[in-house]
Write a protein that binds this DNA or RNA. Structure first.
Length: 845
DNA sequence: TGAGTCGGCTTTTTT
DNA sequence: AGCCGACTCA
């Protein structure tokens, strides 16, 4: 039973009577049971690909075709990885110990830390996130005076990233560039310096994690052989979003091991592992993807990886999953219609046997606030009809759109959370605290060191920093050592003691982290200190939290709370990973994705970008800001293939919805401080009109600035028959792409009366200007001054007056302090929940 | 050296 | 409108 030697590659037949294939459709069954070197599973949205993938892995293990440790499964986010592992363990009824289920980045970090001595880093090397890279580039660009040539940290970073994703490096770039172009020469210099600085700091950026692993494998066949031998089955999810370096990594991992390398492996290879020539055959590869959901071209994802899979891996089998188990037919028809406008795709059409379901609800607001108000009201309506808040999600194209949405959700007392966006770990105070931990793990890293010098303020400025950095480089010592030896430099007594004191603190913390006795209590144990203790030591000794508290600014108060939350995050990590240490903590923090902190049990509405939404599903979905310039985004319009990618983004958004889909837009939108007129998105026009029930169509919002009361603009369903959608809407939605600079990507149906649309657009723009000039802005502009009702006391029975809803009666009050919520019934709109502090209400005496 | 003010720029999406 | 960075003053 437990005899490893009996492992037979051909395996026991899986299939008949196997519960791993029960209830699967024929295509899914094939995807689970197919065996061979290469398998491509083309999985449309909602076609059960996670199920197929987990069952495939479980069947490999259960049939004894593979041990868990021979499986490498790559997912897009850490959350998806955790979920997949859990589901596999559920199927096997046992732990899947030794199985690698992780993201590309996590898997590569794991390999790189193991093999760190091969490239001269310690295993505690630092991972630079985009902000760190930008900080480094900023310094380099300044040093090289490259800003006058138009280089910015952002554009240089993007270019470096693109090159690294192609497995290029500074040397290769310099060799192939046009050397007579000073701009190119300068960029080569930036690139070279950037990489040199990374090396000096013992650091990798995100792209290096993949690229350096590939280089490691290519430079050291013996190292590659270890992993090629170990992973017999490689499975990759979201294959359409892989870039070139990830593709190369997969190729390396699935190569056979040549006899010369196989011979040197430890432990020695067994006869069963090699073929007749003494080679270990390449691992089997399974990739899952959907080219219609490729939305990461901007970071190097190459759709050709999936489109040309069969050419890359001759003899590959292809299985197509087209039956959808997630959405209603109406939603799928809309999705099919939209994506059908992408001309260069493989034909594929989603279908369901579940019936049409409800129609898609459309709404056009007069402003983004009006739009947000509709979203908030509909969410409440859904909630009243029995849907949990956690079953509802709101999507948008750009993070900046959250402002208006959040404001209205707060006012309506709808519990929500924003996924992604300004992430916890991107907050300044968190980065400050983390810079101490990073520096403790890697005392050669200048970025974290430079950051911690200045926070909290202790009189060490740029001058002192520069002197220390020169000293550090000249002596070839760590930054911590350089600080301890500050006496050898010409500093004033005050600055010197600040520097040595800080150096001492870092040294003590580093010894604790390494397991040495930093404090001289009985500690004979050589155990690394818990991360929580290290962090607490730093925060206590630097007084960072108290300093924030002293300022008595509510924002600083929030920052202090964030730091305390960081301590509890660290403690949680310690408890969950008793064997892990500081480096593991830092790795986890660097690689968490936006969707990773998604807590499904939280009972809140989820707000996120369309990108973050990929891979998720919700019973009710709102797609907001469906306007030209936003979706498709202005930036993408002139890019080759840009519109196609935006359309896929729309497609991804639509296909997240299970039962109810809402599509909203606004006719004006404020950006960069002033208000501009927004046109409905071309994608809106691509959805067959009979699928949409307009509560307020774009046509109705055209022309007039919206003088009616907001509450009356959006009567509940039924009050307004949905005739608006058919005629008026679609004629007014027709328009050109604005400037009409026809890039290759734009193959839009040039239907209809462009001229009249243009006229309407001009007219609206004029009206918008006038209204703005007339003062007070738009009547529908909710934003701006946040009101504060202070300690307004309300009790059941009180009569109140609401700016939008009119007269009403309080039926109850829940919550405490600033989160007090009044439940009220209004004559015009019925039941509503209001945040007492912020709602536009007055109480009648 | 550090605090405060003014001006320019921003918004695409993320591991 | 808001954030960051450069510049100015104490």
């Amino acid at each position: 039973m437990s005899d490893f030697e009996l492992l037979d590659p051909s395996g026991a037949p899986v299939g008949d009577g196997d519960d791993l294939t029960d209830g699967l459709n024929p295509a899914q069954k094939r995807a689970v049971t197919a065996r061979g070197q290469a398998l491509l599973i083309v999985a449309g949205a909602g076609s059960g690909k996670t199920r197929v993938l987990t069952h495939r892995i479980a069947s490999l293990i259960r049939a004894r075709e593979a041990w868990p440790s021979q499986i490498l499964a790559i997912t897009f986010t850490n959350k998806a990885a955790a979920e997949m592992r859990e589901r596999i363990e559920g199927l096997l009824g046992a732990s899947a110990q030794g199985m690698w289920v992780s993201t590309f980045h996590s898997a590569c970090v794991r390999i790189l830390r193991r093999e760190a001595e091969r490239f001269g880093y310690g295993s505690g090397f630092t991972i630079y996130d985009s902000a760190d890279s930008r900080a480094l580039l900023k310094r380099i660009i300044k040093d090289l005076d490259a800003d006058s040539y138009g280089f910015t940290p952002a554009n240089a970073g993007a270019k470096i990233s693109r090159l690294k994703n192609e497995l290029s490096d500074a040397e290769a770039y310099t060799a192939t560039m046009n050397a007579s172009d000073p701009r190119e020469r300068l960029f080569g210099e930036i690139f070279r310096t950037y990489d040199a600085e990374l090396r000096r700091a013992h650091a990798f950026d995100f792209d290096d994690l993949i690229g350096q692993t590939v280089h490691l494998f290519r430079a050291h066949p013996d190292v590659a052989a270890v992993y090629q031998r170990r992973f017999r089955h490689v499975l990759v999810d979201e294959y359409q979003d892989t870039n070139h370096s990830q593709y190369a990594l997969i190729r390396e991992l699935t190569k056979p091991v040549a006899p010369v390398d196989a011979e040197r492996l430890v432990p020695p290879v067994r006869a069963a592992e090699v073929d007749g020539t003494g080679s270990i055959p390449g691992a089997s590869l399974t990739v899952v993807g959907d080219s219609d959901q490729s939305i990461y071209a901007f970071r190097g994802a190459d759709i050709r990886n999936i489109v040309e899979f069969e050419r890359d891996f001759p003899g590959a089998e292809v299985v197509k999953l087209e039956q959808n188990y997630r959405s209603t037919q109406n939603i799928l028809s809309a999705a099919n219609a939209v994506i059908g406008n992408n001309f260069d795709r493989q034909e594929k059409s989603l279908w369901t046997s579940e019936g049409d379901g409800k129609r898609i609800v459309g709404f056009t607001g007069y402003s983004q606030h009006d739009e947000a108000r509709f979203v908030a009201e509909e969410i409440e309506e859904l909630h009243r009809s029995g849907l949990a808040y956690s079953d509802i999600a709101v999507f948008y194209r750009t993070n900046s759109q959250t402002r208006a949405l959040e404001e209205l959700l707060i006012r309506s007392a709808v519990p929500y959370r924003v996924l992604g966006g300004t992430k916890f770990y991107e907050r300044a105070e968190i980065k400050d605290a983390m810079s101490y931990l990073t520096s403790i793990a890697n005392p050669y890293d200048p970025i974290s060191w430079s950051r911690l010098l200045g926070v909290p303020k202790r009189g060490i400025g740029p001058m002192a920093e520069a002197h220390l950095a020169n000293f550090q480089e000249a002596q070839g010592i760590s930054f911590h050592e350089a600080m301890l030896r500050a006496g050898e430099l010409t500093f004033g007594p005050k600055v010197r003691s600040a520097i040595t004191g800080l150096g001492d603190l870092l040294g003590r913390a580093a010894r604790m982290a390494a397991g040495g006795g930093a404090t001289d209590d009985s500690g004979t144990e050589k155990r690394p200190a818990p991360v929580g203790d290290l962090l607490k030591l730093i925060l206590d000794e630097t007084g960072m939290v108290e300093r924030l508290r002293e300022k008595r600014d509510p924002q600083d108060e929030a920052r202090a709370e964030n730091l305390e939350e960081l301590v509890s995050v660290a403690r949680e990590f310690d408890a969950k990973n008793p064997e892990a240490g500081l480096v593991e903590f830092l790795t986890e923090v660097s690689l968490v994705a936006a969707a990773d902190d998604l807590d499904d049990a939280s009972g809140t509405v989820s707000l996120m970008t369309l990108h973050t939404a990929k891979g998720l599903e919700y019973p009710a979905v709102f797609i907001t800001g469906v306007e030209e310039g936003l979706l498709p985004h202005q930036m993408s319009v002139d890019e080759v293939g840009g519109i196609s990618e935006e359309r896929r983004l729309m497609y991804v958004g639509i296909t997240r919805a299970r039962q109810q889909l809402f599509i909203t837009l606004a006719s004006t939108r404020a950006q960069f401080g002033d208000i501009s007129v927004a046109m409905p998105s071309r994608f809106l026009q691509e959805i067959p009109e009979h699928l949409i029930e307009w509560r307020q169509s774009p046509g109705e919002v055209t022309g007039r600035g919206g003088t009616e009361s907001r509450a009356l603009n959006a009567p509940r369903s039924g009050a307004r028959p949905a005739r608006g959608g058919a005629s008026s809407t679609n004629s007014s939605v027709t328009f050109g792409s604005g400037g009409g600079r026809g890039s290759a990507a734009i193959a839009e149906p040039a239907s209809g009366n462009m001229q009249s649309a243009l006229d309407k657009w001009r007219e609206r723009k004029r009206l918008a200007k006038e209204q703005q000039a007339a003062g007070g802005g738009f009547p529908n502009l909710v934003g701006g001054n946040v009101r504060d009702n202070g300690d307004l006391e309300l009790a059941p029975g009180d009569r109140i007056s609401h700016e939008d809803y009119g007269e009403g009666r309080v039926t109850g009050v829940t919550g405490v302090g600033s989160k007090r919520i009044a439940h009220a019934v209004f004559e015009s709109v019925g039941e509503r929940k209001l945040l007492v502090k912020l709602a536009p209400i007055t109480k009648h005496d």
